[in-house]
Lab assay of single mutants.
Amino acid sequence: ETEYTFDDKREADRAAKEAQNNGLRVHVTKDGNRWKVRID
């Protein structure tokens, strides 16, 4: 399990989409004014 934090939602969405394309499970959550992408 890996977690990334992004300031920009577009960057978070791009990272999530890339991980999904690689067959990974992805969870995107909002943390204040930042975005967390957790990859299982």
Score class of each variant (00 low, 15 high):
residue 32 G to V: 02
residue 14 R to Y: 08
residue 6 F to D: 00
residue 3 E to R: 04
residue 4 Y to K: 07
residue 37 V to E: 01
residue 19 A to F: 15
residue 27 H to Q: 12
residue 35 W to P: 01
residue 10 R to T: 11
residue 40 D to Q: 13
residue 37 V to Y: 00
residue 12 A to I: 01
residue 22 N to P: 01
residue 14 R to F: 09
residue 25 R to W: 07
residue 9 K to D: 03
residue 25 R to T: 11
residue 35 W to A: 00
residue 18 E to R: 11
residue 34 R to H: 10
residue 4 Y to F: 11
residue 28 V to S: 02
residue 34 R to W: 07
residue 24 L to G: 04
residue 18 E to T: 09
residue 9 K to N: 03
residue 36 K to L: 13
residue 40 D to M: 13
residue 29 T to N: 04
residue 29 T to E: 13
residue 36 K to A: 06
residue 20 Q to P: 00
residue 20 Q to G: 06
residue 38 R to I: 15
residue 8 D to G: 04
residue 28 V to A: 01
residue 34 R to L: 11
residue 31 D to F: 08
residue 27 H to W: 13
residue 32 G to N: 05
residue 38 R to D: 04
residue 10 R to N: 13
residue 37 V to S: 00
residue 37 V to D: 02
residue 4 Y to G: 04
residue 7 D to N: 10
residue 34 R to F: 11
residue 34 R to S: 10
residue 19 A to S: 03
residue 6 F to M: 02
residue 21 N to I: 11
residue 9 K to L: 07
residue 3 E to T: 12
residue 12 A to Q: 00
residue 4 Y to D: 03
residue 11 E to G: 06
residue 28 V to Q: 03
residue 27 H to K: 11
residue 28 V to E: 01
residue 21 N to V: 09
residue 5 T to V: 14
residue 7 D to A: 10
residue 5 T to E: 09
residue 13 D to S: 05
residue 25 R to M: 09
residue 15 A to D: 01
residue 23 G to C: 08
residue 36 K to F: 08
residue 37 V to I: 07
residue 26 V to Q: 01
residue 26 V to M: 02
residue 39 I to E: 02
residue 4 Y to T: 05
residue 16 A to L: 05
residue 10 R to S: 13
residue 15 A to V: 15
residue 1 E to K: 12
residue 4 Y to S: 04
residue 39 I to T: 05
residue 19 A to L: 15
residue 24 L to V: 04
residue 35 W to V: 01
residue 12 A to N: 00
residue 18 E to H: 11
residue 18 E to G: 05
residue 10 R to K: 13
residue 23 G to L: 03
residue 38 R to P: 01
residue 5 T to M: 13
residue 17 K to E: 11
residue 35 W to L: 00
residue 2 T to Q: 12
residue 33 N to Y: 05
residue 14 R to Q: 11
residue 31 D to C: 07
residue 20 Q to C: 09
residue 29 T to Y: 15
residue 30 K to R: 11
residue 29 T to S: 11
residue 21 N to L: 13
residue 5 T to I: 14
residue 10 R to P: 06
residue 18 E to K: 10
residue 16 A to T: 05
residue 12 A to G: 01
residue 19 A to E: 02
residue 4 Y to Q: 08
residue 12 A to L: 02
residue 29 T to C: 09
residue 16 A to D: 02
residue 8 D to K: 06
residue 7 D to L: 11
residue 13 D to M: 15
residue 32 G to Y: 01
residue 3 E to C: 12
residue 7 D to F: 11
residue 11 E to S: 12
residue 22 N to K: 14
residue 8 D to R: 07
residue 38 R to Y: 13
residue 7 D to G: 07
residue 1 E to V: 15
residue 2 T to E: 09
residue 39 I to M: 04
residue 14 R to P: 02
residue 15 A to I: 13
residue 20 Q to M: 14
residue 15 A to Q: 05
residue 21 N to F: 08
residue 39 I to H: 03
residue 3 E to G: 04
residue 28 V to P: 01
residue 32 G to Q: 04
residue 20 Q to L: 13
residue 27 H to E: 12
residue 22 N to L: 13
residue 8 D to Y: 07
residue 39 I to Y: 05
residue 30 K to N: 07
residue 16 A to W: 04
residue 13 D to I: 14
residue 28 V to Y: 03
residue 31 D to H: 09
residue 24 L to I: 05
residue 16 A to I: 10
residue 11 E to H: 07
residue 13 D to Y: 15
residue 33 N to A: 07
residue 40 D to H: 12
residue 6 F to S: 01
residue 28 V to F: 03
residue 26 V to G: 03
residue 26 V to K: 01
residue 4 Y to P: 03
residue 30 K to T: 07
residue 17 K to C: 10
residue 3 E to S: 09
residue 17 K to Q: 13
residue 1 E to L: 14
residue 12 A to E: 00
residue 25 R to L: 08
residue 40 D to N: 10
residue 39 I to W: 04
residue 10 R to A: 14
residue 16 A to C: 09
residue 30 K to E: 06
residue 33 N to M: 06
residue 37 V to W: 00
residue 12 A to W: 00
residue 40 D to T: 14
residue 32 G to L: 03
residue 8 D to M: 05
residue 23 G to K: 03
residue 28 V to K: 02
residue 32 G to M: 02
residue 21 N to D: 13
residue 24 L to K: 08
residue 40 D to I: 15
residue 9 K to Y: 14
residue 39 I to F: 07
residue 12 A to Y: 00
residue 20 Q to I: 14
residue 17 K to N: 09
residue 7 D to R: 08
residue 24 L to W: 12
residue 31 D to T: 06
residue 2 T to F: 13
residue 14 R to E: 11
residue 30 K to V: 06
residue 22 N to S: 11
residue 22 N to D: 06
residue 11 E to F: 05
residue 16 A to F: 05
residue 27 H to D: 06
residue 22 N to W: 06
residue 22 N to A: 14
residue 21 N to K: 13
residue 14 R to D: 08
residue 15 A to P: 01
residue 40 D to E: 15
residue 8 D to A: 05
residue 10 R to G: 12
residue 10 R to I: 12
residue 30 K to Y: 14
residue 19 A to T: 01
residue 39 I to P: 03
residue 22 N to M: 14
residue 22 N to H: 11
residue 8 D to H: 09
residue 31 D to L: 07
residue 32 G to C: 03
residue 37 V to A: 00
residue 5 T to P: 02
residue 25 R to G: 05
residue 16 A to H: 03
residue 10 R to E: 15
residue 33 N to H: 10
residue 33 N to V: 05
residue 6 F to A: 01
residue 1 E to A: 15
residue 25 R to V: 12
residue 12 A to D: 01
residue 28 V to W: 02
residue 2 T to D: 08
residue 39 I to N: 02
residue 5 T to D: 05
residue 12 A to P: 01
residue 37 V to N: 01
residue 36 K to D: 02
residue 1 E to R: 13
residue 32 G to I: 01
residue 38 R to E: 08
residue 9 K to T: 02
residue 2 T to Y: 13
residue 30 K to D: 03
residue 14 R to T: 07
residue 29 T to M: 12
residue 8 D to E: 07
residue 6 F to Q: 01
residue 20 Q to F: 10
residue 31 D to N: 05
residue 29 T to L: 11
residue 32 G to R: 03
residue 33 N to G: 10
residue 33 N to T: 08
residue 17 K to T: 10
residue 38 R to F: 13
